[in-house]
């Protein structure tokens, strides 16, 4: 018995060491690896229409190079998805999608699992410690909204209210007076001082809780595009006041990647700049949001 057990333990240790040796790579850069692979693995959070959501009738792209456990562009829809596909096209590779939880994406240290996040991520000082951001591809206003029946219509009415936000979002940080590192001209107001912050898994639960008749909070703070989509879907909510602050949304790349990412960051940055110049981004924005959100409102 004892001998068998020791043998078993030895086997486990040996297999761990073997696995560790087997994974050792050459001195490729991330960009070279992506080009060799022919695919760019993009993380996205398909909880949000119109940015990123699933197509229940979508077909897996034919002759795809994406691995079996990755989604192809044919199974996903939305603005972020189209932007990711356009970036990949400019790099001459195919975009493949994976869908980890949002707080895992923003936490960095992706363990080389995916190459890039194209998921409407706001550039903040804290995130810049762990992620490299490229040129923003669009800008959205942060917007308060409230249950239509609550009678809350102006920013002054927010005092004393409970405000719902999605977890690990800039809206949560801003309400908690965390310095986001946004330029001063992007901040249109001070966070209301005496609100209680309620955090739910995603922004979408906030609006749905209100629609379901829950009364723990009547107010939520999210992107103006999400509020527009909530109203368009018939949820009983209204916008409260003007934009609270403007967010610069950009693709992000993990600083903790084991390969050199500099050339990849530069290539994606060049691709986004080219898409600004040739109007690709404006056209996609108008297609998905009805307005051009790709111009910096503070310029």
């Amino acid at each position: 018995m004892n001998k068998q057990f020791a043998g078993f333990a030895l086997l486990i240790v040996a297999s761990l060491i073997l696995a560790a040796c087997g994974a050792g790579g050459g001195t490729q850069t991330l960009l070279e690896q992506i080009e060799a692979r022919g695919t760019m693995i993009v993380s996205t959070d398909p909880n949000y229409e119109p940015q990123s959501f699933l197509d229940p009738n979508g077909q897996r792209a034919a002759n795809t190079k994406c691995a079996d456990d990755q989604l192809t562009a044919g199974e996903m829809v939305g603005f972020d998805v189209d932007v990711a596909v356009a970036i990949a096209e400019r790099l001459g590779v195919e975009a493949c999608f994976v869908t980890p939880d949002w707080d895992i994406i923003t936490a960095g240290n992706w363990g080389d699992r995916w190459d890039i996040s194209v998921g409407s991520m706001t550039i903040t000082t804290a995130r810049q410690q762990i992620l490299d951001f490229v040129t923003p591809y669009y800008f959205t206003p942060a917007q308060f909204a409230a249950a239509a029946a609550s009678g809350i219509t102006s920013v002054e009415d927010l005092n004393g209210q409970a405000v719902c936000v999605g977890t690990a979002t800039t809206y949560e940080d801003w309400l908690n007076s965390v310095d986001l590192g946004l330029p001063a001209e992007s901040l249109f107001m001070q966070p209301p001082s005496d609100v209680t912050v309620v955090t739910l898994p995603t922004d979408q639960e906030c609006a749905q809780s209100i629609a379901a008749g829950r009364t723990e909070f009547s107010v939520y703070l999210t992107s103006g595009t999400v509020v527009d989509s909530n109203i368009a879907n018939g949820l009983p909510v209204v916008k409260v006041g003007g934009p609270a602050f403007s967010e610069n949304l950009a693709a992000a790349i993990d600083k903790g990647h084991s390969l050199d990412t500099a050339s990849f960051v530069a290539a994606v940055d060049a691709a986004v700049n080219a898409m600004h110049t040739d109007g690709t981004l404006s056209q996609l924005s108008i297609q998905w949001f009805g307005v051009d959100l790709t111009q910096d409102p503070t310029q």
């Binding site: 949000y48 229409e49 959501f53 699933l54 979408q204 749905q208 879907n233 949820l235």
Partner: peptide, 9 residues
């Protein structure tokens, strides 16, 4: 995912 993006949790 479908529930959130369609508001039908």
């Amino acid at each position: 995912k479908l529930g959130r993006s369609n508001f039908r949790n």
